[in-house]
């Protein structure tokens, strides 16, 4: 057996093309779970991060929080959440959001905090109110940092959503976990390859977005 035959076994299986175990369906499940987790994390963390960054409060706390969040083992959080709340998307969403939110919080906070102070002063000087300064000056300035944070969070959620297949969720992790459980190595390997492709595609998407993220006024200063 070699890579080529393993992968061709996996990709030519009719189950991969139709039905609940098809690649399209699994990719869809993976993307929906990732999207839900990221969406929730954005709603929870970004406004708070922007506000904290603008006021300059609790910056040390925010940094400590991300350090602590990084130390939490994802597999442990996912298994515990399912034992406590039962199998389902909601149970797994909690740890996924808990992982993504601190990353976004720090990105928003640091991005706004890094705004050129002269720019902020000038904006105040021409009569902008604080909310206007935040929205029209600091948020555009923070956009690249926010996107970088979003990229890190997305990649992390995609990886953790793979692990979540262990507790019975759908997504591409299904192939990996089912293959390991049934000693069906082609399936495990094919699933792993698809996860890698999805992660790389996400990276490329964000690299492309990044080109448009910087406001025109800040390019080539």
């Amino acid at each position: 057996m070699n890579w080529f035959s393993w992968l061709s076994t996996f990709f030519t299986d009719p189950d991969r093309l139709h039905g609940p175990d098809s690649i399209v369906h699994r990719v869809g499940e993976h993307l929906i779970l990732t999207g839900e987790a990221l969406g929730l994390a954005i709603v929870l963390a970004v406004p708070l991060g922007l506000l904290l960054g603008y006021t300059g409060r609790a910056a040390a706390l925010v940094t400590a929080l991300t350090g602590a969040a990084r130390a939490l083992p994802t597999l442990g959080l996912v298994t515990l959440a399912v034992l406590l709340a039962g199998v389902g998307d909601t149970a797994v969403l909690v740890p996924l959001v808990a992982l993504a939110a601190p990353v976004l919080l720090v990105a928003a906070c640091e991005g706004v905090r890094g705004t050129d102070p002269d720019l902020r002063d000038a904006a105040r000087g021409i009569g902008l109110t604080h909310p206007q300064v935040l929205w029209q000056v600091c948020v555009p300035w923070a956009l690249p940092a926010l996107l970088a944070g979003l990229r890190t969070a997305a990649v992390q959620v995609i990886a953790t959503a793979t692990v979540a297949a262990y507790v019975g969720l759908g997504g591409l992790g299904r192939y990996v976990v089912d293959g390991l459980a049934t000693k069906d190595f082609p399936q495990t390997l094919g699933g792993a390859l698809l996860v890698v492709l999805l992660a790389v595609a996400t990276q490329l998407l964000f690299a492309a977005l990044n080109r448009f993220a910087l406001p025109a006024g800040l390019r080539r200063r």
Partner: peptide, 18 residues
């Protein structure tokens, strides 16, 4: 290495098993 860092760990473990 930016790309390597973004690879999900479970997937990389699996690819190494052979």
């Amino acid at each position: 290495f930016n790309v390597v860092y973004a690879l999900p760990s479970l997937a990389v473990f699996v690819v190494l098993i052979p």
